[in-house]
Design a protein around this nucleic acid. Sequence first.
DNA 1: CCTCAAACGGACGATGTCGTCCGTTTGCGA
DNA 2: TCGCAAACGGACGACATCGTCCGTTTGAGG
Lengths: 234, 234
Amino acid sequence: MTGESSRITAQGRARAGAGARADARRNRERVLAAARAVFAEHGIDAPMATVARRAGVGVATLYRHFPTRDALVRGAYQRQMETCARALTDALDEPDPWQGFQRLVETVCELQREERGFPAAFLGAFPQSTAEQAQAREQAERAFTALVRRAQAAGELRADFHPSDLAVVLLAHCGLVTALPDDRAASRRLVAYLLQSFRADGAAARPLPPPAALALRDLPIASVSPPGRRLFDA
Amino acid sequence: MTGESSRITAQGRARAGAGARADARRNRERVLAAARAVFAEHGIDAPMATVARRAGVGVATLYRHFPTRDALVRGAYQRQMETCARALTDALDEPDPWQGFQRLVETVCELQREERGFPAAFLGAFPQSTAEQAQAREQAERAFTALVRRAQAAGELRADFHPSDLAVVLLAHCGLVTALPDDRAASRRLVAYLLQSFRADGAAARPLPPPAALALRDLPIASVSPPGRRLFDA
DNA sequence: CCTCAAACGGACGATGTCGTCCGTTTGCGA
DNA sequence: TCGCAAACGGACGACATCGTCCGTTTGAGG
């Protein structure tokens, strides 16, 4: 029999982690970078082979590192996901209750705005069911609820704001940046409007970021003649 | 030579219109109904063959009536698109400026909320370029701008609302209902928040519809342990 | 330097969708 | 009732993507 040590080392080796071979580690990073680039350009459903080619590796290498598209997507945007989670803890560290709340929303939306494929990944991961992460979830949920309660107690967040409204905001924003990946002004504008409406003292209308770059005429609604009569009946 | 009349009639016949054969007209309607059903269930990208099977027709019949998927989608949601366009004219008929504005937003969002596949169709049609409809577009754009100006002049719509914000609202809402087709409460909630923030007198916080049905724990953000330290470090 | 397991890459069969072609059926006018 | 063009339906070839298999290369420990 050959030595057990080498056999064990080989089997139990973390995936392209510290103990992995140098080329494996390098290729893993290349694939992740390529995935972000390709996903940004062609969307999350881009062919796996395209990612592999862009990374300069064979498809087999890609599949070896990431057996499913889902694993690849998660790998590609892990950093963003972690930043989201960290924003939650940072928000509670913020002394001002409203600032903390506002920063959380803005940080997550900014992440969605800046990294092209991330919103789709975020949406795709939406109805998650990895039992292993249940605990982390529960903690995060409690953390956000605490954040909400604190801002409400300070009289800055409207009393009827419900924690689930965060999901409403993020999903809506996701949709916007997915539809208009280039128009950051639109994203900022939406966030500003929403934060405005979350304030308990809706009173003082707050200044808005500059208007969106998109033209209204691009809307489908504007390209269908209404049946029956014409606008401004000429 | 055979009679010209029959030849001309056959060639120039409107697609499954009044002059078409009975079975053709019937099948066209069946296909449209099937398309709505299938799109609602499996999304707009569902295989054409699935639609054909559901309609009880062959694929060839489907393609004969709708040569491209795009044509099918447009056909399936033409009524909704027209209702959108009509809402624009109706809004101007409304005597109260704010009511008119509010009704427009609510009507369009309700359409997106009620018919499953419509939001995706709406998004898909977004950067349209059918030159033929340029005039109708321009008219609709002017109509909406007029609606905005009127509500602003009445001091009910905030002065810095920009007509392009309508697109922001609709795209965001589209994203939300696409992500949560079953949660109408979430949609109503978003619309209420947005309309609130559009009011010039943001002051009086308006009552909100009941909270969304979704659980916060479904958010991806809640399923990633923040790196570095734990929430509520136990 | 030598050895070997780990890692690699590309070819290939499987799968699913598209859209056309063509033989058959059917509605409708004569 | 008859005849024909319009409409129909399903089979089929083209095409794209998937994910595995296997022969080859390579990094690293001895």
